[in-house]
């Protein structure tokens, strides 16, 4: 065990979740003859892109010490707007969808910033309220896209690779750079790690919180638009439980709920882990209910292992 610890703590620290991703990847390659093919792997990327995109924004929000439970509802609203407004104009529909996500994020961020009410409560309220708005807007009906360019986009590819997968990977790269290379990213860590010290260092905490809520709102809306284009439709219940899947992926990736710690690379690992498990078990024809039980058990086990590996055994040694 100690050598394993040393391995994880080394300079080129490999995140535990990636070991897990590689392990299940190899496992399913042996267990199912259909698993290891370009078609299936790009398929996994497309399947995970929805939750993956939201998880990118959620990582920043969580490192910042907040959480956003309203992403599923935001996704649903954006999808309905993107399909529902197409009659007027395609461009308008997409812009309105993305704008709605950013606006909802900004409102969440503003309330958390200005009132100091816990983000969990604020976004829980937003989750219920926005879902209500979707029903008001759609009148409880599903919208179907009559625009084939829109529904074809979701299935289009560049070479052998689906456009959705490319968008997801590009966004991942951008958010990784934002988090690790920009001042905003650094301050996101600082605010999550110690809000009081951050204020005293002259960091404008509210501004960073708001930016992160806007980012997650944007990604939820983008995920909604892309999901609608995949399905060629939007249902009022679209995005239910997505906040839970997203948070699961982010936490699997090593981001701490308490803030101040996490990474986009870890989140990518968490997203892929969930995607591979669902896909692999599906190919092995594991019944859907068992899949949920297994995913739940794996989430808890991974976090236990992570906690054991990172046990602060050297904490007492001071220099």
């Amino acid at each position: 065990m100690t050598s394993l610890k040393g391995f994880f703590r080394g300079k080129t620290s490999i995140q535990p979740i990636w070991i897990f991703v590689i392990a299940i990847f190899i496992f399913f390659s042996f267990m199912s003859e259909y698993f290891l093919s370009l078609g299936n792997i790009t398929n996994i990327l497309v399947q995970t892109s929805t939750i993956g995109l939201i998880a990118l924004g959620m990582t920043l929000v969580m490192i910042n010490g907040n959480i956003d439970l309203s992403v599923g509802a935001t996704l649903g609203l954006a999808a309905s707007l993107a399909v529902g407004l197409q009659e007027i104009s395609m461009t308008l529909a997409i812009l309105a969808a993305l704008g709605s996500g950013m606006l909802l994020g900004a409102i969440n961020g503003l309330i958390v910033w200005k009132t100091g009410v816990n983000a969990f409560i604020v976004t829980l309220g937003a989750m219920l309220g926005v879902r209500g708005l979707i029903f008001l807007y759609t009148g409880e009906e599903s919208f179907y896209s009559m625009n084939f360019a829109f529904s074809d986009f979701g299935a289009s590819t560049i070479g052998p690779i689906p456009v959705l997968a490319i968008i997801f990977l590009l966004c991942t790269l951008v958010m990784h750079l934002v988090l690790t290379r920009t001042g905003h990213g650094r301050n996101t860590f600082a605010v999550g790690g110690n809000p009081e010290a951050s204020i005293d260092a002259g960091i404008r905490l509210g501004r960073h919180m708001m930016i992160n809520f806007i980012i997650v709102g944007f990604f939820a809306a983008l995920a909604g638009v892309l999901l609608a284009s995949q399905m060629g439709a939007a249902t009022p219940n679209l995005g239910r439980d997505y906040e839970l899947w997203t948070i699961t992926a982010v936490v699997l990736g090593g981001t701490k709920l308490t803030g101040g710690f996490g990474s986009i690379t870890g989140t990518l690992g968490g997203v892929l882990a969930i995607g591979i498990l669902r896909n692999g078990m599906n190919l092995m024809q594991v019944p859907a209910f068992y899949v949920l039980v297994i995913l739940g058990a794996i989430l808890i086990s991974v976090l236990i292992i992570d906690k054991k590996l990172n046990a602060p055994s050297t904490k007492e040694v001071r220099i």
Binding site: R186, F189, A190, G193, N194, E196, A197, S198, D200, A201, I203, G260, F261
Partner: peptide, 15 residues
């Protein structure tokens, strides 16, 4: 009030 304890020395220095 002064430090982000989980951050490294360099990052705290330039905060």
């Amino acid at each position: 009030q002064g430090l982000i304890l989980g951050m490294n020395c360099r990052d705290n220095m330039t905060l």
